[in-house]
């Protein structure tokens, strides 16, 4: 899911200082799980705005804020409230905010959160980044642990000289991704793959922005363009 963090409330109020009437838009998916865009946070922000003498014409938690059409349909019943609104504050991720920008062509739209990363929830409202959405997955070659994400240097062929007692030079809090990969490949009996293969430099053209995908009726990506192990001649 997309991990979000609330922006500093002072900063948010400063950003929207010129507007008088607001509509608050949350999201029932990631932002709710992050505690940044559920009903509770909508109520909280409504209270804050009202305490500052601003009006909140309406508030709604969209099913999936990044789904542009679905959110647009859901918002139809708030025609009246939205008519009174000069600013929409979106309590989800940057994608959700930009759905609102598309839906409300002539209204100001402001983000309530900072979007941080694609994360896994490990415990309630505790998140880890495990995938960088690089566009060419190499988990098949690294025992299922992503070094592009788990290693601060994103290196592809084993630990650097900065490993200290299995932890990273960047922070003792970070377990060395390559020690983890090595141990995992050993456990699943694939250590020989790790030792024998050298991963070629990544093809970053797979993540040139902005990316677009039409998944409807499109065949699988041809094998030839995939990055892979590069064996030494």
């Amino acid at each position: 899911m997309i991990i979000t963090r609330k922006k500093d409330r002072k900063e948010l109020l400063e950003n929207v200082r010129r507007y008088k009437s607001f509509f608050l838009l949350g999201c029932s998916e990631c932002a709710t799980l992050c505690g940044t865009g559920g009903q509770e946070q909508l109520d909280e922000l409504k209270g804050l705005l009202e305490s500052e003498g601003r009006a909140v014409a309406g508030a709604f938690v969209a099913k999936t804020g990044c789904q542009v059409l679905g959110t647009k349909v859901e918002l139809k019943r708030f025609k009246e409230e939205l008519g009174k609104t000069d600013c929409v504050i979106v309590l989800s991720c940057g994608a959700g905010t930009q759905s609102a920008v598309e839906i409300f062509e002539d209204k100001a739209v402001y983000p309530s959160n900072d979007s941080m990363f694609l994360g896994n929830m490990t415990r309630l409202q505790m998140f880890d980044e495990r995938c960088s959405l690089c566009g060419e997955c190499i988990l098949d070659k690294t025992g299922g642990i992503c070094p592009v994400t788990a290693c601060p240097k994103g290196i592809l062929n084993g630990p650097c000289g900065g490993t200290k007692d299995g932890h990273c030079e960047v922070s003792a809090e970070i377990p060395c991704a390559w020690v983890r990969i090595y141990e995992r490949m050993e456990k699943i009996g694939r250590l020989e793959d790790f030792k024998a293969g050298t991963l070629a430099a990544k093809n970053w053209s797979a993540s040139v922005k902005p990316r677009k995908l039409t998944a409807r009726g499109v065949p699988e990506k041809p094998q030839a363009s995939r990055g892979g192990r590069e064996e030494k001649k």
Binding site: N157, G158, G161, T163, W178, V179, Y182, K195, K232
Partner: peptide, 20 residues
């Protein structure tokens, strides 16, 4: 790094460097 801890992944990388 001959004193790396753990050593085995470092040695595997040493071999990769030689092959490279």
């Amino acid at each position: 790094t001959p004193e790396a801890n753990p050593l085995a992944p470092q040695l595997a990388k040493f071999e990769k460097k030689i092959r490279a």
